[in-house]
């Protein structure tokens, strides 16, 4: 029983032409169509996520992993042509076709995205607690004390000092802001959390703590996750299975330890050999 499955997911920025798919990708060595100049951000991506599973997506910048993550997380982005389908167990139809209202409802109850860039995910003028509360309030919570209690427990769970709850978010450290994002993403007990580059901008020592915190919560709350990262260490720690992307295509996939210890594709071998 699959929770989320993608079939032939494609996003092309630009006019697009007949040749786009054939002349881009791993074999072509580019994601830009030489015929029309369109950028094939990702193409023909199939994947499948089950309840409680963590799927890793690795690749260098420009490999299409963030484009894919945005599509899976219902991120509103009107740019580009989108093809393929994404099926979600708790909603009939193709998630790539849903209207704004449905998208909003799903994002406020089922699928959460932790943005790569903190500014895209948080209102830095609101308090940290306010940013977390927004998800609850948007999904219909109307009791102030209930909201306070839930926000405080999410702060505890994500290891943010509760006494900082009412301080403006721009006064938080990068690691705390990332935790606020995660707390916000978890606030409405989603079925799926999509983490886009969860360690971006964090000190190495902070990275490990944030990942550890997320892994603990992911297991305790039985939430499924898709973790997108250029960092092999991130998927090693979090993901059961991993996809490797390059030039907009999935070039290798399998058990995370298999991909990392017995990489088949030349690019994956290079990626692993160049990592320390």
């Amino acid at each position: 029983m699959s929770l989320l499955s993608a079939d032939g997911v494609t996003r092309i920025y630009g006019s697009g032409c007949e040749a786009c798919r054939d002349r881009t990708g791993d074999a072509a060595g580019t994601n830009q169509c030489p015929a029309c100049g369109s950028v094939v951000a990702c193409a023909d991506v199939d994947l499948d996520l089950q309840p409680r599973e963590v799927l890793g997506i690795v690749g260098e910048s420009g490999s299409g992993k963030s484009s894919l993550a945005e599509l899976l997380a219902l991120e509103p982005n009107q740019d580009g042509h989108v093809h393929g389908s994404v099926e979600y167990a708790n909603h009939p139809g193709n998630l790539l076709d849903v209207d704004y209202e449905t998208r909003h409802a799903l994002r406020n109850g089922h699928i959460s995205l932790v943005h790569q860039h903190i500014r895209d995910g948080l209102d830095l003028d609101f308090s940290g607690g306010g940013n977390v509360a927004e998800k609850l309030l948007a999904s219909g919570w109307r009791n102030y004390e209930d909201v306070r209690e839930r926000v405080a427990s999410l702060f505890e769970e994500t290891e943010i000092p509760v006494e900082r709850m009412d301080d403006p978010t721009h006064t938080y450290s990068g690691g705390m802001q990332r935790r606020v994002q995660i707390a916000r993403a978890l606030a409405i007990n989603p079925e799926i959390v999509v983490l886009d580059e969860p360690t971006t901008g964090l000190d190495v020592s902070v990275q490990a703590r944030v990942l550890d915190m997320f892994r603990r919560i992911q297991r305790e709350e039985d939430v499924a996750a898709i973790v997108v990262s250029h960092d092999l260490g991130v998927v090693r720690l979090l993901a059961d299975r991993t996809l490797v992307m390059r030039h907009g295509r999935v070039i290798e996939s399998g058990l995370t330890d298999r991909v990392l210890e017995d990489p088949h594709h030349e690019y994956t071998q290079t990626l692993i050999n160049s990592a320390i």
């Binding site: 399998g254 058990l255 330890d257 298999r258 210890e261 017995d262 088949h264």
Partner: peptide, 9 residues
Amino acid sequence: LKCLYRTYE
């Protein structure tokens, strides 16, 4: 051992 555990395919 790794083949038995499927860390190697």
